[in-house]
Design a protein around this nucleic acid. Structure first.
Lengths: 339, 339
DNA sequence: ATTGGCAGTCAGCGGATGCGAGTGCCAACG
DNA sequence: CGTTGGCACTCGCATCCGCTGACTGCCAAT
């Protein structure tokens, strides 16, 4: 069984390897850390750690590097959530201090997070489930195409194009707009959606199909929200850490641009309210990211949930990055929560 | 002086080098192309081309590669704008065929362009200068913060947060909204801006400052437009072409994410209406991109101008990419032009 | 359980070597 | 004068070799 000192050894192996990018040997451990025992003793501990598959040697007679399992133990039991430095706190303040609309805040947040962690940062748009409809607007684009704009009380703006089967004159459209606004403004998304489904147009029956089309699109727009949208920043950081990926980072960047994969990944990560969830290396193999780690945390905007986090090579500074993810998530919740 | 055959030699050097990524020698030229002369003759031509700085030898006794100047001559005089393949035309149709709002169309376009060219694609948001105000909406976020939303007839939606010096009750806000809508709806951006500047609030003079703040923000929102926004896709392609950059591609990716630099670059490129402008290698040195080429073309959305294009290593397939950029720009103009 | 010692392993480095692609130059030819 | 074949020369590149240094694994002693 691995002793307490053995776990300490694992910790310093992770720390040193993350810092130096070089396999760490028994000698360098006793040199850099005061364990009070000899290198040979450390070697015995390392042999045990290797038996437990927590560390591995890239080549015979080389130092050891942590395995995915080793990182997992480190993250779960050994990592000290290093508090942010004053400089980092300062950065958060100055970055997010100004007032801005939702889009702007999210873009700033994701940039901030990528700067704090030196990794690719990702922020998911908050769902609209708890938001309330503030206004509905229809803008004719052509005779048979209208733009439907939905404004929520949390400051979000959703738009959607509707193709009509035949032309709709401006006046009728005005009536539809007025009636629908009366019907849904002030309601929560779920209620609004229900209200729309139930609504029947009292005027000319000929209009009913077209109104149905509009209301169903609107209902769809309301229901779906935009949790399928993701903001990204810091792709350049992935290039910087290129050497930590055995193959090319091409597929990784592709997955990130694809977004779909990441949204699934976000969705499947544990959602313990304010903790940081970590998914390491091969745990992400199903998503085509067997050499990457993903740290996420939930945040709330007006009671609406979403996630944010970072993605990077397995070999990353978990302590610092987990702290940064948590800090930004909290700050963002605070910033967007004040209704 | 460089002969006609000399220029032909330059052309095949560019083509072969772009295709093979290897310096091309006199022998391989006579092998792959039927010049009807011997390798020695080609060598003489190449010596002239080298004198003119159109090609260079990476190492003594190696084949030649085009210089920036060589690419320039190629693009200006030698490139045949290869028409798109049927498959490519097909791709454009299926990609942009569906109806969608502006955001969606631009995102699809940029992805399409990156797929057609295998490079990083960029699309600038169209200006609002020719658009007309369709609706103005104010949404209270907190007691002293409101969200101003501007909807244009081209289907664009602009939002901005306004910080008020003191609270504004809902009813007053409603009045302001109603009056401002009457004042600007249907006007072009310039007129609307002017109308706002001239507007004086007839009610309580105590409200004048706050109304001024709102109108000036709105005017600002109208005036500035969003030409400072850029959509990007295909960053992964940059990784694929990494070897074509002598140093790291880190600064390149950084510049792309920064956007500011690229917007300046876009702005300074020739704006001949429907042609494709090309900026090669060191011509972009001022923008920190001395090893990259940028191809752009203008497009119009409802009479509003913007640019789109691709960015990649100097060693790229100019013929194909120029054709793709032009095709997408034209298609997009057509798609967004129908008002 | 811990330690010092010792043999064994292997990646990385630097220098030597050979190969081959490609050039530059020149003399000859039509 | 443009073109051609020939030839010597240059280098980049891959390969090989031997050395060195860092580590490990094991063992016997404490």
């Amino acid at each position: 069984m691995v002793s307490d000192r053995g776990l300490d050894v694992l910790r310093v192996i992770v720390q040193d390897y993350v810092a130096s990018r070089e396999p760490v040997g028994s000698k360098s451990i006793v040199d850099r850390h005061s364990f009070g025992v000899s290198a040979a003793t450390i070697r015995n501990d390392m042999a045990l750690l290797e038996e437990e598959q927590l560390i591995a040697a890239p080549h015979t007679s080389s130092g050891r590097i942590p395995t995915d399992k080793g990182y997992r133990v480190f993250v779960d039991h050994l990592a000290d959530l290093r508090p942010l430095t004053p400089a980092q706190r300062q950065a958060i303040e100055t970055f997010l201090g100004h007032s801005a609309d939702l889009d702007e805040v999210l873009v700033r947040s994701v940039r901030l997070l990528s700067q704090l962690t030196h990794q690719v940062a990702l922020v998911q748009y908050p769902s609209l489930s708890r938001a309330k409809v503030r206004h509905v607007e229809f803008v004719p684009l052509t005779e048979t195409r209208i733009l439907s704009v939905l404004i929520t009380d949390s400051g979000g703006v959703e738009q959607r194009v509707i193709d009509l089967p035949y032309a709709l004159d401006e006046q009728t459209l005005g009536e539809v707009r007025a009636r629908l606004n009366v019907a849904v403004v002030g309601l929560g998304m779920a209620e609004a959606s229900a209200a729309l489904a139930a609504s029947i147009w009292p005027g000319s029956p000929a209009l009913q199909p077209i109104v149905n089309l509009i209301t169903s699109t609107l209902a769809d727009q309301i229901g779906e929200g935009r949790q399928d949208k993701l903001v990204m920043a810091g792709a350049a950081n992935l290039v910087r850490t290129e050497d930590d990926f055995s193959g090319s980072i091409y597929p990784v960047l592709e997955a990130i641009e694809e977004q779909v994969v990441l949204l699934r990944l976000f969705g499947e990560m544990e959602t313990d309210q304010h903790g940081v969830s970590v998914s390491i290396g091969r745990e992400n193999a199903a998503f085509g990211l067997p050499e990457a780690s993903v740290l996420t945390s939930g945040y709330t905007a007006n009671g609406n949930l979403a996630r944010l986090g970072v993605l990077g090579p397995t070999r990353m500074d978990y302590s610092n990055n987990m702290a940064a993810v948590r800090a930004v998530a909290r700050y963002l919740s605070r910033l967007l929560g004040e209704t």
